[in-house]
Amino acid sequence: MIDDIGRLVRTESPSADLAAVARSAEVVAETGAAHLGSAPDTLVVDGRTHLRWRLGDGPRRVLILGHHDTVWPLGSLADRPFTVRDGVLRGPGCFDMKAGLVMAFHALAALGTGAVAVDGVTLLITGDEELGSPSSRELIEAEAAGCRAALVLEASADGGALKTARKGISLYEMEITGRAAHAGLEPERGVNAAVEAAHQLLAVAALSDSAAGTTVTPTLLSAGTTVNTVPAHARFSIDVRVRDAAEQARVDTALRGLRPVLDGAELDITGGPNRPPLPTSASAALYARAVRLADALGAGPLTAASVGGGSDGNFTAGVGVPTLDGLGAVGGGAHADHEHVLVDELPSRTVLLAALVAELLTAPADLLTEPADPGSSR
């Protein structure tokens, strides 16, 4: 597993570099084919390369999700080389989430040599998750349709916790048009887009609701052209995170209802919901099964976490498919210089994944309608 992870990490794959993502897909495909005995379908959508293995000829029952793109630019390996030292594996993209891909390959390969036929499993590895999955969302939702479960190999939460809930995400851009004027000679003739932006920033931030778990955060901001000109244009980005669809709709309506404060200013807001929420109701039964299996395998006790970040699991939950996330590597530092994977956790988590897939393939159809054990959410 370490050798496979090293091979994937050394193949850099920043999401925005289409050629790099295509090269990465080739390496991921070769690595996966060596374990699974077959090559994947290579799916290129809007120039972005995704991989799909459909294992067996039976109806699709389990979707395993991952992505091979990363946030790290080309050349990151020079300062952050792939290393394994004192039980800690490091390198750009190792935790988020190339180790998870390798876990999926090894888990499915182990099942293929055991008593459970891997028939009805789809393994989908996308190449644009870090961008919000603009080209792969429809593919993810189509592959999830009809499945009894989606298992997401994103990295675990702190301490190895599985991710049983994720907030929904909406992304917006507010563009403000004013009127330029000389800042020293006749500022009164202008309509200051920066001042209007200040009013709108406060109005946007006020839409947050801490009790509901809703955050509405103005982020990237720009205004003006020169130091002695009343800004004619300004813009800022807005990041929205919500626990439920009702809050996502409330914020969307409120943002689109904002009006200018300054006479002569104009507002234009674009964007909208990007990912629906992944509620605990979508993961509860799967999590209860994972807890029981982990205890039986000596890989427990498992814990659960609700997180603000999104993943492709939001999409599968959004189309009504039971979804369990955070089944990938244990470690930390996603998107940060200290990104790492704990090597000792790799085998037991991979065995747990294999056991969960096996149960989903062989258990009765009503498996996921059973209520979770109230004591399992520790």
Rank of each mutant, 00 (worst) to 15 (best):
L267D: 10
N274R: 09
T219P: 12
L221N: 06
Y287P: 06
R189Q: 10
G190P: 03
S237T: 13
V251S: 02
V195M: 09
P273A: 10
H199V: 00
A249E: 04
H182V: 04
A183F: 12
D209C: 05
R235M: 10
I269Q: 10
L278P: 06
G224P: 04
L258C: 07
S283N: 14
E186L: 12
T219A: 13
D239H: 06
G224I: 09
L207E: 09
H233A: 15
L262E: 12
R275G: 06
L201T: 07
A180I: 10
T219R: 11
L255A: 06
N228V: 11
S237C: 09
A245V: 06
L255N: 04
D268H: 15
D263K: 08
G257L: 03
G264W: 06
D268E: 14
H182Y: 10
V195G: 04
V230W: 05
L255F: 03
L278F: 04
D209A: 00
A285R: 15
L220R: 10
V261M: 01
R256W: 06
V230H: 07
S210Y: 14
A290W: 13
L286D: 15
P279V: 08
N192M: 12
P231M: 13
A194Q: 07
A181F: 08
V261G: 00
V240F: 00
A232F: 01
R241Q: 03
V204I: 12
L202T: 09
V251H: 03
P273C: 00
E188K: 09
P279C: 04
S237E: 13
L202Q: 09
A180T: 14
L255K: 07
L258I: 07
N274Q: 10
G271S: 02
V261D: 00
A234M: 11
L262R: 00
A197P: 02
